[in-house]
Design a protein around this nucleic acid. Structure first.
Lengths: 201, 201
DNA sequence: CCAATCTCTGTACAGTTGTATAGTAAGGCG
DNA sequence: CGCCTTACTATACAACTGTACAGAGATTGG
């Protein structure tokens, strides 16, 4: 069993079949939704048989959890890539935001998956949003301990602000693009409208 | 065949079986997505058999189109309920916005269905977004002819603004609520964060 | 009143789904 | 070497899917 480096690499060409299955599942889940994606489609995209998926993950639900775990880990690694000492204290937060934004724009599948996960009332199962919220809360906590982070608002309020501003635009952009395309001959392509998403308390 | 009033009534207790099927389908499609909703589930919710659904709508796809048609008609009727002469010219637009907002908050299923329809990249099929955009464009056109509506921006830009501001908040609100609930003991329930969605050109 | 039309039920069918399992190839280790 | 664990394939199966169809009541028009 060729042991691989721990730490999830979401993209690479030479990967374990297990990792290829997870990546293919992420792509297809993001593109068509979990329910509309069959294990056979995942198997075909990963170049394996259905049996192997079952062997590695047991059930489709477990595969979905593995996908979500990989997403959370991707977020965590991205945040950790900008450690507390790496920038002047007051620039840690914006720099981390920038890193997350870059990671998301490089992984469209993660954005698409999140969009679905959030609107599917995921409150019941697995709880991707919960885990991302906790991750975000941890980050706020760290920044506060380091003395950089307003304490004017509660942690909850700050987490909402971070996540909504990060994800809100990504979620709404498809709507804007769709409508803008509808009037493509009308609106000059250069003046693509600009989304503003924020929360006030 | 008890002929009914034309014009779609989305809610009422005594309805044609055909209308009950469409309403049940809207509810279930909105709650779980079209693909994840079986015709048997729709039949059970409407109190009929699968055969009757097929008899009235032929295919599941046709049922989905009927649902979307009803949604568009609901929008059209709501806008038409505030005709051009009913208010001072400069208050027609805000009054129509208010009417649409009221209609949407009374029909959560429509909001949920729209949310799914938009992110499912519906550019390919049926095209709910297209039809709503055209409806919105028609409205802008009317207001311009009546001399009330800025011509500083293109119609396309105005449509984007109307639709994104109308729908954007509704789409993002679940995310805000989810996260706010996550920190329910932290954030005072009274200070529920307030979403700001807008577009700039 | 009879025939036609319409609403509605029940059953049947082929295709797809997730899952189970028996079996094959391969590599590490005593 | 043999043995055991692991990676992987192939086949099978029950459950569920959308659709088709034959027919039963009910209603309506002539």
């Amino acid at each position: 069993m060729a042991q691989r480096q721990p730490g999830v690499s979401l993209r690479a060409d030479d990967l374990t079949a297990k990792a290829r299955i997870r990546n293919a599942a992420l792509d297809l889940f993001a593109a068509h939704g979990v329910d509309a994606t069959s294990l056979r489609a995942v198997a075909a995209a990963a170049g394996v048989t259905v049996g192997l998926i079952v062997h590695h993950y047991g059930t489709k639900e477990a595969l979905r959890e593995a996908v979500e775990f990989a997403i959370v880990e991707q977020f965590a690694e991205t945040i950790a890539s900008v450690p507390l000492g790496s920038y002047p204290p007051d620039q840690i937060a914006p720099e981390r935001d920038r890193a997350v934004a870059a990671m998301l724009s490089a992984n469209q599948a993660i954005v698409d998956y999140l969009r679905r996960a959030i609107l599917d009332g995921s409150a019941e199962r697995g709880d991707l949003v919960s885990r991302l919220s906790r991750l975000s809360a941890q980050q706020v906590h760290d920044l506060r301990e380091a003395g950089v982070a307003s304490t004017k608002h509660t942690v909850g309020e700050q987490v909402v602000t971070i996540m909504v501003r990060q994800l809100g635009r990504l979620f709404l952009q498809p709507l804007v693009d769709r409508i803008a395309d509808e009037f493509a001959d009308d609106t000059a392509a250069s003046t693509r409208p600009h989304l503003v998403v924020d929360v006030s308390h």
